[in-house]
Design a protein around this nucleic acid. Structure first.
Length: 814
RNA sequence: GGACGAUUAGCUCAGUUGGUUAGAGCGUGCGAUUCACAUUCGCAAGGCCACUGGUUCGAAUCCAGUAUCGUCCACCA
């Protein structure tokens, strides 16, 4: 190996004398002393991501440039317009005037980073780095989510496994301590992993959905909505999870297909209409029978029947006609159990049937209303009992096995028991005076319909509208302990001394206002001075997530008054609405829509301009990654084995928005080779152009090189267009292809001959072309593979100032 | 049941919104090479762009229908 190694240590930066020219102390080859480039011994070995990435990340972090307030001016090469005939470029410094902001979808503090997170981080980092290089004041605000139910369930499981105790054994305070300890540990892991991914986010602004500032935001929002009459307490059929002892949202239900027996029977010998049910035990709570208005049972509509004894209880059944009943299905009639079925409850509403006949309790056991015979017994047991009774009475007409979808809780697996409960709701259909009389539903719809928010890919807009059409009031209270406690207090005196939060209790005579909504903690009733007790429930985690774009930017503490001034206290003015929300399509409804709601309601503006939805990351064969299949790929393992750059590139190339993507080790290995290829391209160019410095105004290109230059311009212009249009998958692939198959395979191969036997001008031209191309390729690839490009840049340019880092150089628009 | 999407090389997928000969990666076959490359390079094979019809000078791309697969939503007593 004949390569000259100028320097082997990275310590010595050339010194400057007072006139700003370089003063070379000693031992550096004189002819090339103006060339800061060195051929580093590192280039003698293959690229080593493990030894590089951590060090480079620290370099970036230390620079402070992740923080938009500390970003340097952007340096731009511009042609002089008014000056002399000399068309050489000069360097101009521009302030960063436009802002670009992404608020990171906060990973749950329940575990470790997975491939989906890696994809999210990569896409966002690409956008952020690109915009930073385009001269924007870029803020990428990181954070984590307390993920109430998920985290609590996780800790409950752990505690039970280790100590055999449940949360009630520990008590609220002690249990929360455990959860917080777990969340803290999990948080630290996640943050370190986000850093491994190369994410250039501003850690000084890091947020947590359950920290003090966010809690203030949540409390403020709750009070505002309550005062506006948008939050109300009401008795509704909720999805009760008897196993988790909590209410869960529709979105947290998973349906499992199971076999069940459908029983067809009559309530009594004299009752004319047979009905069918897979849950005869609930029939103890029936208040009527619904039939189709034009069906075969039409003649009974409006009649009321009294059943003296239905398995131990009397029933009063009114026959009503309702369109919701399918005349072809089953017997063409539905027994109505308003307290234990969503649809029955709605039918009962339409026909003013009583809804208070609750026969099943929170523990999944029968209640008093089910009669002395069944009171306190388990549901399954009672089902058998009722069927037996029906058989004995000769009322059972048919038993058939059917498959049905059973609603179960995603987290606990418990079978959902619809129960009426007193819960807190957000009214989505009430006009909001402050917002021109629009309802929350309309706010959500119009933000997208008016194109103020653009969703990528576009077809998800249809799904979004469809979801909004079917939206019901949002139940926001959860009977769990970990989360934002509902900022509501009850004066005990107002309830006659006994607090019964979930039951409708008739107000005892009292002047006290109940409930009392307060952002501050209170212990005494502001009216009578008696003791108050806080609502034991916590808020749905999406309530706090909904505020994420502005609770992270300072709301409600900092008003929107000082746009243009740097500093976190002006973030709301400077960065909201944010520019892009990048997330998985599976949480379009849970989260995206709710952010639109909250932001539109509280600030009167959209939370973001563009929604970029990515797909699910699957394995090489298109299967979902799962623990049971053992086909998961851990992004941290990938970083160790192939380097983060390789993993990032593999996730991006060919990954269109909204579409699932497959990833395999083979694909990642391919891009590890690419990082090494780039390394070798740099090595070749830097070694074969020794003595030559990149001349920024160079124009004496040979005709062949002029052509190559045109081609390069074309590619980079295309890539820039792709970046602007969020076609990162195309941009990445084009750059990959250009670097490998044009620059390396063609240009460099030709150059070898030129350097061997070409004319001096030809050699000079080619050397300049190669240096310029390397410079631009490194810049353009930096958002995608930031580590290897920065490392090459550092070895080549040896910047003395942190402003010389590739991360803050200008993007090559052509 | 409703909505949305997909169907392109052996495999996994692009195809920038109608324009010449449909591309990439991996894989396969043949041949070079240690001269930047824990290799890399060159060459090659391989496609009725699901099917049927329509619009158009021109369709993988737009429209209608059919088939298969997938995702989401709702959930029926």
């Amino acid at each position: 190996m004949t390569t000259t190694i100028y320097r082997t240590s990275s310590k010595r930066a050339p010194l400057r004398d007072q006139r700003g020219s370089f003063f070379i102390p000693f031992a550096i080859h004189p002819p090339f002393c103006y060339d800061k480039r060195v051929t580093h011994e590192k280039f003698q070995k293959p690229y080593d991501p493990q030894g590089t990435e951590g060090r480079i990340y620290k370099l970036w972090e230390k620079s402070g440039f992740f923080n938009p307030d500390r970003l340097p001016l952007i340096n731009t090469d511009e042609k002089r317009v008014n000056a002399d005939a000399n068309s050489r470029r000069k360097s101009v410094s521009h302030p960063r005037t436009s802002a670009f902001c992404i608020v990171m979808p906060p990973p749950n503090v329940t575990g470790v980073l997975h491939m989906g997170h890696a994809l999210m981080l990569t896409l966002e980092d690409i956008m952020i780095r690109y915009k930073r290089m385009r001269g924007f004041k870029t803020l990428w605000l990181p954070g984590t989510d307390h993920a109430a139910i998920a985290t609590q369930a996780r800790v409950e499981k752990d505690v039970y496994k280790k100590e055999g105790r449940n949360r009630h054994d520990l008590g609220r305070e002690e249990f929360l301590k455990r959860v917080e300890a777990f969340a803290k540990e999990s948080h630290d892991t996640i943050v370190s992993q986000i850093k491994v991914m190369g994410a250039s986010c501003d850690w000084s602004r890091e947020a947590f959905t359950l920290d003090e500032k966010r809690s203030l935001a949540v409390g403020t929002m709750f009070k505002k909505m309550y005062d506006d009459g948008l939050i109300y307490r009401g008795s509704r059929i909720v999805n009760w999870d008897p196993k988790g002892q909590t209410t869960i949202s529709d979105d947290e239900i998973v349906y499992e297909t199971r076999k069940a027996v459908l029983y067809t029977f009559r309530y009594g010998k004299d009752f004319p209409i047979p009905i069918a049910s897979t849950r005869p035990e609930t029939k103890l709570g029936d208040v009527g029978v619904a039939v189709h208005p034009e069906g075969k049972w039409k003649k009974y509509i409006g009649k009321t029947f009294l059943i003296q004894d239905f398995a131990g209880v009397p029933l009063t059944l009114k026959v009503v006609g309702d369109e919701a009943v399918d005349k072809e299905f089953g017997t063409g009639a539905v027994g109505l159990t308003p307290a234990h079925s969503h649809t029955d409850s709605e039918i009962a509403d339409r026909h003013e049937l009583p809804k208070d006949r609750v026969v099943i309790g929170e523990l999944g056991k029968m209640s008093e209303a089910a009669g002395a015979r069944w009171n306190g017994k388990k549901v399954a047991e009672v089902r058998e009992g009722v069927v037996l009774w029906l058989k004995e009475q000769g009322l059972l007409e048919k038993e058939e096995e059917i498959t049905q979808n059973v609603a179960t809780a995603e987290r606990t697996g418990g079978i959902i028991e619809p129960l009426p409960k007193l819960q807190w709701f957000v009214n989505v259909n009430k006009p909001v005076a402050e917002r021109g009389g629009k309802t929350l539903k309309e706010i959500m719809r119009e933000a997208v319909a008016s194109k103020e928010i653009k969703i990528l890919p576009e077809h998800f807009e249809k799904t979004y509208f469809h979801w909004i059409e079917n939206l019901r009031d949002w139940c926001i209270s959860r009977q769990i302990w970990y989360g934002h406690r509902i900022p509501v207090y009850y004066c005990k005196r107002g309830f006659g001394g006994e607090l019964q939060v979930h039951k409708v209790v008739k107000s005892v005579k009292s002047d006290c206002e109940n409930p009392i909504v307060s952002i501050e903690n209170i212990v005494d009733c502001p009216h009578c001075g008696g003791t108050v007790e806080q609502d034991p429930d916590t808020l749905d985690t999406w309530f706090s997530s909904g505020l994420w774009t502005f609770s992270t930017l300072g709301w409600p503490s900092f008003a929107k008054a000082t746009a243009g001034t740097p500093g976190p206290e002006n973030d709301l003015a400077n960065y909201h609405p944010t520019d892009v929300l990048e997330t998985g399509y599976e949480i379009l409804f849970f989260w995206v829509a709710r952010m639109v709601l909250m932001s539109g309601y509280a600030l009167g503006e959209v939370p973001f301009r563009t929604v970029y939805l990515h797909g699910t990351v699957r394995d090489g064969q298109g299967r979902k990654m799962s623990k049971s299949l053992g086909n998961g790929i851990d992004p941290i393992d990938v970083a160790k084995k192939f380097g983060t750059d390789a993993g990032r590139m593999a996730l991006i190339v060919g990954n269109t928005p909204g579409t699932d993507t497959n990833i395999s080790e083979d694909k990642i290995r391919g891009y590890k080779n690419f990082a090494n290829k780039l390394w070798n391209i740099a090595r070749f160019i830097l070694e074969s152009t020794k003595g030559e410095t990149l001349e920024s105004g160079f124009s004496a290109y040979s005709s062949a090189d002029m052509k190559l230059r045109e081609e390069r311009h074309g590619i980079l212009a295309d890539v820039t267009k792709d970046m602007e249009a969020y076609r990162f998958y195309l941009a990445a692939e084009k750059l990959y292809h250009y670097a490998w198959h044009t620059l390396a395979d063609t240009v460099i191969e030709e150059s070898k001959e030129i350097f061997r036997s070409g004319a001096p001008e030809e050699q000079k031209s080619r050397k300049q072309f190669l240096l310029h191309t390397l410079d631009k390729v490194l810049r353009a690839l930096h958002p995608f593979i930031p580590f290897v490009t920065e490392e090459i840049w550092q070895l080549w340019k040896q910047p003395e100032e942190k402003e010389g880092m590739l991360m803050v150089q200008e993007w090559p628009i052509h």
